[in-house]
Simulated assay, not measured.
Amino acid sequence: MFQDFNFKLVVVEKLMYGDRTLTPAFDIAEALPAADPWQYAYDRGLAYQVLPEARAYFTALEIAPDLLATVEELVLDGGLTVYQHCAPVWDGEDDLFDVGSLADLPLLPNLRRVLGSEFLSGSLQAELTSRGIEAD
């Protein structure tokens, strides 16, 4: 359904960790054989990367169109909870979670505003504006 994994994560943040309407909430600690996600990532050379377990979960996660229709606002920020569950060892200082495409916008028919749009490229900011979506 989603073409841009990182855009999907922003939507998941809103629905799963913000609105709590997409359930159950994913917890990376529950998906790993080790209790400490930080240690797990370091021991396997996965620091500053999306853990395979998280990528598989979020890639396969289906979100019903009626739930997607509830999204009116998205927030782009390096401190999103979903990022902590994807890459427990990540400091926000690289492009790991940069949104590269807005091809998935049609999935969100009621999206009206994107906060933190300065994290998008100029062309993506312009695309939001051209679609009548407020880019703050």
Rank of each mutant, 00 (worst) to 15 (best):
F5L: 02
F5C: 04
F7E: 08
K8N: 13
L9I: 03
V11L: 07
V11H: 07
V12H: 01
E13P: 03
E13M: 08
M16S: 11
Y17P: 03
R20K: 15
T21G: 02
L22H: 05
L22P: 12
L22A: 13
T23Y: 05
F26K: 03
D27V: 00
E30K: 10
E30M: 06
L32E: 08
A34F: 09
A35I: 02
D36H: 08
A41H: 11
A41L: 11
Y42P: 10
Y42G: 11
D43K: 03
R44E: 12
L51Y: 11
P52C: 00
E53T: 10
E53V: 10
A54T: 13
A56P: 00
F58Y: 13
T59G: 04
A60K: 03
L61I: 00
E62V: 14
E62N: 12
A64K: 14
P65Q: 01
P65D: 11
L68C: 14
L68Y: 09
A69L: 10
E73W: 00
L74P: 03
L76E: 08
G78T: 00
G78N: 09
G79T: 14
L80K: 06
T81I: 13
T81R: 03
Q84Y: 00
Q84D: 09
H85A: 05
P88N: 02
W90D: 02
D91I: 05
E93A: 10
D94A: 00
D95I: 06
L96Q: 05
L96H: 08
F97W: 10
D98F: 14
V99H: 04
G100Q: 14
L102V: 00
D104Q: 02
D104H: 07
P106Q: 08
P106F: 06
P106Y: 01
L107N: 10
L108S: 09
N110C: 01
N110S: 15
L115E: 14
L115Q: 07
S117H: 00
S117R: 00
E118D: 14
E118Y: 03
G122M: 12
S123V: 01
L124V: 11
L124W: 04
L124D: 14
Q125H: 05
Q125T: 08
Q125R: 02
Q125L: 05
L128V: 10
S130Y: 09
E134A: 04
E134Q: 13
